[in-house]
Computed example of a mutant assay.
Amino acid sequence: MDQQQLAYRMFAERAGRDFLTGLHALPEFKPRPGVDLGRLRISVTLLGDGDPHLGFADMDPVNLGDLASIAVRRAEGLRTKHAQTTRPTLRLIGGTA
């Protein structure tokens, strides 16, 4: 593995651990007593070279739903940004002058 690949892998591992730290830091949504929303387990594994498991976080569906909404808004923004960066071109298809 060259230096650039190693740096990217270290960045990916750090991002995965930071993501899990952020999930653990979220306060749990607690509905009224007697209501069980269930829990969802988010697992983070770094793919490639042995696929090390970085950890997991158990979350309530309300927090996870909010994170999903944030991810969707970010994806829409990125798609819009990248669509605007393409420069339109004019092409002559054919014909006589």
Rank of each mutant, 00 (worst) to 15 (best):
93 I>R: 12
30 K>Q: 15
95 G>H: 03
7 A>D: 14
41 R>M: 08
33 P>R: 11
34 G>E: 10
33 P>F: 05
14 R>P: 00
35 V>T: 15
41 R>I: 07
14 R>I: 00
4 Q>H: 12
55 G>S: 03
14 R>F: 05
73 R>S: 11
6 L>S: 10
97 A>Y: 08
72 V>D: 10
70 I>N: 01
10 M>C: 03
70 I>S: 02
1 M>D: 12
73 R>L: 14
11 F>H: 10
35 V>A: 06
64 L>E: 03
6 L>D: 09
92 L>C: 05
31 P>F: 07
68 A>V: 10
97 A>M: 04
46 L>M: 12
90 L>E: 06
97 A>Q: 07
16 G>N: 09
28 E>Q: 14
81 K>P: 00
76 E>H: 06
15 A>Y: 05
28 E>C: 08
89 T>P: 00
80 T>L: 11
4 Q>E: 14
24 H>D: 14
60 D>R: 05
5 Q>F: 04
69 S>Q: 13
60 D>G: 14
14 R>A: 12
16 G>H: 09
53 H>R: 13
28 E>T: 15
3 Q>P: 00
73 R>M: 11
91 R>N: 07
92 L>T: 04
65 G>W: 02
91 R>E: 14
78 L>F: 10
67 L>D: 01
22 G>L: 03
77 G>P: 00
8 Y>A: 09
68 A>H: 10
67 L>W: 06
50 G>N: 07
31 P>N: 08
72 V>L: 15
49 D>A: 13
49 D>C: 00
2 D>K: 10
41 R>T: 15
75 A>T: 09
87 R>S: 06
33 P>V: 03
5 Q>D: 12
75 A>H: 11
24 H>A: 15
94 G>F: 02
93 I>N: 08
41 R>D: 08
12 A>V: 04
86 T>Y: 05
85 T>A: 14
50 G>Y: 07
34 G>K: 10
26 L>P: 01
12 A>F: 06
69 S>A: 15
43 S>C: 02
55 G>K: 03
51 D>G: 03
47 L>R: 15
71 A>E: 04
60 D>H: 04
60 D>W: 02
73 R>T: 10
25 A>V: 01
96 T>L: 11
27 P>D: 13
82 H>T: 05
16 G>M: 08
56 F>V: 00
56 F>Q: 12
25 A>G: 01
35 V>R: 13
81 K>F: 13
85 T>C: 00
94 G>N: 03
1 M>P: 10
20 L>E: 04
42 I>Q: 06
44 V>T: 06
35 V>K: 12
58 D>R: 09
93 I>P: 00
83 A>W: 02
28 E>Y: 03
84 Q>M: 13
77 G>F: 08
